[in-house]
């Protein structure tokens, strides 16, 4: 009996790290299976799967940015507004007749500068919490976006500008049908996520971002310039929101005042579902991706089943609470000696 208990305990110890790392993927796989069983003809069809990826494309950029911020034990409430402002600047520049390569680069610069503004505000103005600075800029950036566009939608971009959000990679050379294409935005998500995975896990700066979240005093005592790293993190978060704006411009062919409204909350939800901790220092890029996918699949699946969007809200909220509760239980198990 004792021996058996020990065996279970040691197996438990061996499994825990994997469960901690990949448990969220398990949840994702279960969701996919459930959706497949409920909608066997449609859900895993080429058309629907690419649709899901197109729908999550810009959210995945915001979530990745917010994730980095959350790892430092901070928060960025302004990502939706940064995306909207970047999108509006893109639209205005495009309407002014700028060449496509200028139009494409403007939202990235605008997003980066907005993030830089957040980062400098938090560090130089010594805001008691990033919540306050980014709550302020949530209003400032959206207001500015409406000021420069006059509060009306601006539509009609060239194909080059729309490429990242709307482009298709033809797979007919693989013997597939014309409808079985690869969305460019999916490739973009993969590339950006891989780059940021390498950045966060294999670079000094990435390691320091985790260290700041784990113990900012330890980071400071190690000679790490904590403020500089925070400015970098918020700037990158803004930059990713700028990429989100470029994707959204491609998808909707329009800059509109409500773009990204409340999407900061979706981004935070995806991070939390994906296992990031509000206390900082915890979470993985893979987890964020899974979090974004879970939210995307839930919305898509419920749409397929014609469930009202009100029920979608209730379910997404429940998943957030459930996912974090599972995390709490898992931690209890993990620390049991």
């Amino acid at each position: 009996m004792d021996d058996k208990d020990k065996k279970i305990a040691s197996l438990h110890l061996k499994l825990m790290p994997y469960l901690e790392k990949y448990g969220i993927l398990l949840l994702l796989v279960i969701m996919i299976l459930v959706m497949h069983i409920l909608q066997p003809d449609v859900f895993l069809s080429w058309r629907n799967v690419t649709n899901v990826f197109k729908q999550i494309s810009w959210q995945s950029m915001l979530a990745l940015g917010v994730f980095m911020v959350i790892v430092t034990a901070g928060i960025d409430l302004s990502v939706g507004s940064i995306m909207m402002l970047s999108l509006m600047i893109l639209a205005v520049v495009a309407k002014a007749g700028a060449p496509w390569y200028i139009v494409v680069i403007t939202p990235l610069i605008a997003g980066f500068l907005c993030g830089l503004f957040n980062g400098l505000g938090i560090t130089l103005l010594r805001m008691p919490h990033p919540f306050i600075m980014t709550l302020g800029t949530l209003y400032i950036f959206r207001g500015t976006g409406n000021l420069i566009s006059g509060g009306t939608p601006i539509s009609g971009f060239t194909d080059e500008v729309r490429y990242l959000g709307h482009g298709r990679i033809d797979l007919q050379w693989l013997g597939l049908e014309k409808s079985q294409y690869l969305p460019v935005s999916l490739v973009l998500i993969a590339i950006v996520y891989i780059i940021f995975w390498i950045f966060l896990n294999h670079s000094k700066t990435g390691k320091w971002i985790y260290a700041i979240g784990g113990n900012p005093n330890a980071a400071r005592a190690s000679g790490i310039n904590v403020n500089k790293i925070l400015v970098i993190v918020y700037s990158l978060c803004g930059f990713l929101s700028g990429i989100g704006a470029l994707i959204l411009a491609g998808r909707t062919d329009s800059g509109y005042p409500n773009a990204g409204l409340q999407s900061e909350l979706d981004a935070i939800a995806a991070c939390i579902i994906g296992g990031a901790s509000f206390f900082g220092g915890r979470g993985t890029v893979l987890g964020v991706f899974a979090g974004v996918m879970i939210m995307g699949i839930l919305r898509n699946g419920l749409n397929l089943m014609d469930v009202s969007s009100f029920w979608q809200q209730v379910l997404i909220g429940s998943i957030i609470v459930l996912a974090v509760y599972i995390d709490v239980l898992r931690r209890d198990l993990g620390t049991r000696k």
Binding site: K204, K207, W208, Y210, A211, G213, G214, N215, N217, A218, A219, A221, S222, G223, I224, G281, R282
Partner: peptide, 22 residues
Amino acid sequence: VYQDLALAGNLPIGENIFLGRE
């Protein structure tokens, strides 16, 4: 060596020892 130890609990031993000088 600080009284509050100045270690990042979320990082492994090795990464703490070399933190800032990896």
